[in-house]
Nucleic acid binder design. Structure first.
Lengths: 205, 205
DNA sequence: AATATTATATACTGATGAGTAGATTGCATT
DNA sequence: AATGCAATCTACTCATCAGTATATAATATT
């Protein structure tokens, strides 16, 4: 193990490093936003939690709103990915909807997912809010589409897709509020239990 | 209709008037908190929306946190009332749970109910947050108790009360985010649809 | 070697907004 | 009539915090 690693980084390494720093910043910010709320979190505090100073944040990100927008975008992209995954999967509408709901719930228990749920658009500028709403809309549309599909192929009961989507979204989104990573069940286990319950409801069969 | 009403108010009338003003203040504040978030709402703005000045708010309420606390307390008391009502009602656990969920959803579409849902405890001082959590806990306990009862009397399927309560609470709470009073359905109609869906789930029977 | 770029810091500016001091008016009580 | 209290205002103070100006050191480029 002589000469384990050169101390001189290549250009690629430096890009990667920059990206890692950016990402660490976003994670720290999202965690604090989730804990205290956007307006109650100062960038000074975020910087301090990483042992750096505020201007360094501005070196990596444009302004406070952009910090939030990036966090939300990451979370929403995870949700898009979940929707695509569910759509590529074989199986009935029911099976794919369940898959999507599960992933959705899991994501909402993570840092960026929680940020998407906990931060309404009231923290954004009009343009930011518009873009955010459009992205959320896409996720909602994906959910409704899966429901419609399932109703068509008979694997899902004939429900109103709009009402069903609101109810299901609420159930999986709410986990952003109560789920604790240090609890008895992991995020995946919890998500599955939630979806199992939602699938059959609480009336006995 | 000579001498329709004396312009001199009685002591009682004055107390009532004071209370009405206090209440109008809380409604205006809650609406603004719901729209923009607690930290993004200044008391100057709340006052302006009523055509008064900020010190007048301080004449009726102690400070900004107390304004929020009062709004939350009103919302939570509505929820307690709903729980008591459901408990006094005759019928199976299923029927009473459904009743409670319905009222709960309706409340969450109103001003103070929305305030309870939209404002996490991150806006409160440690003591305020503790009291608020205790009250929320009582509502949650009431829901779980109803579920347990229903499972016992066989009117509800053998579900995990904790998971079920989280899922159901999420579904009815989420309406605070999406429900628009100017939509096609009224709050009561919407609530019933939501609860009907949750009762049977989306898997076909 | 000289110059540019990147990453970081300290120390400021300017706005916003919670909360207060003190004045004013009008009604109520003695 | 005199005094006190309720309701309201204008005009402040003080703290916080987003965002910036500017300095410095290290690394990269020519």
């Amino acid at each position: 193990m002589e000469q384990a690693q050169s101390p001189f980084r290549t250009a690629q390494q430096k890009l990667d490093e920059r990206d890692a720093k950016r990402r660490a910043l976003l994670i720290a910010a999202a965690q604090m936003f989730n804990l205290r709320g956007f307006h109650a979190t100062s960038l000074d505090d975020v910087a301090a939690s990483l042992g750096i100073s505020k201007p360094t944040i501005y070196h990596y990100l444009g302004n406070k709103e952009q910090v939030l927008v990036e966090c939300l975008t990451i979370g929403l992209e995870q949700l898009f990915a979940a929707a695509n995954e569910a759509n590529r999967e074989p199986g009935t509408g029911l099976e794919r909807l369940r898959k999507f709901l599960c992933r959705n719930a899991e994501i909402n228990m993570g840092v960026f997912g929680r940020c998407v749920i906990l931060s309404g658009d009231e923290n954004l500028s009009p343009e930011g809010a518009r873009k955010l709403r459009a992205m959320k809309r896409r996720v909602d549309d994906a959910m409704r589409a899966l429901i419609v599909e399932g109703v068509k192929d008979g694997s899902i009961a004939p429900v109103d897709p709009k009402v069903a989507a609101f109810a299901l979204a609420g159930a999986v989104n709410w986990s952003a509020r109560w789920f604790r990573a240090d609890g008895a069940l992991s995020a995946e286990e919890m998500a599955l239990q939630l979806v199992d319950f939602l699938t059959v409801g609480f009336a006995p069969r």
